[in-house]
């Protein structure tokens, strides 16, 4: 979201406090002084994670502090993870494989890049999943793993730096 603040000391801190109070997780803050407007205010871009039903309460809390919300861009599926699948992907009903993730309501397949070297040879695909939270991403990966086991598809999961 883009916030408009008075250009006086302490304003930025005052604007961020309601976000943490309400349980939001601040991911990045972009604060550029040269964007100061004629009304002696400045604009700040804040990227945060927050349960959707708390958004109205947050906007209200910010307004009470004299902090205007200029714009809100919502992205529901913040978590992204790519995996590689190897096997007979088409012949084991790729539509169904994708549907099993899409049907969850909390995750979806956002990208599929498939390479088919020759007829009857196993094909290889990069599948990108999006999910609303890390827990739900784990759940989506678990579903994909189960589907893959049923269809004799090999799934290569990524390994994080620190777990």
């Amino acid at each position: 979201m883009k916030l408009e603040l008075k250009d006086t000391p302490g304003q930025l801190l005052g604007a961020l406090k309601p976000i943490s109070d309400i349980g939001g997780n601040i991911i990045t803050i972009i604060h550029q002084r040269d964007q100061t407007t004629s009304e002696n205010t400045l604009k700040v871009d804040v990227v945060l994670e927050l349960a959707e039903q708390k958004l109205d309460a947050l906007i209200e809390a910010l307004r009470e502090r004299g902090c205007g919300v200029v714009r809100i861009g919502k992205q529901r599926l913040l978590q992204k993870q790519s995996l590689i699948m190897i096997g007979h992907l088409m012949h084991t009903d790729l539509t169904d494989t994708v549907d099993r993730i899409d049907q969850t309501g909390f995750a979806e397949v956002s990208e599929l890049h498939m390479v088919m070297p020759a007829i009857d040879e196993p094909s290889t695909a990069k599948i990108t999943l999006r999910a609303v939270s890390p827990e739900e991403m784990l759940h989506a990966v678990r579903i994909l793993r189960e589907v893959a086991e049923q269809k004799d598809i090999l799934i290569l999961e990524p390994i994080g730096g620190m777990e």
């Binding site: 590689i84 190897i86 890049h113 390479v115 196993p122 695909a125 990069k126 090999l154 290569l156």
Partner: peptide, 9 residues
């Protein structure tokens, strides 16, 4: 069963 395509991706 790792394919070269998997390494490229």
């Amino acid at each position: 069963s790792i394919t070269l395509e998997a390494l490229s991706l």
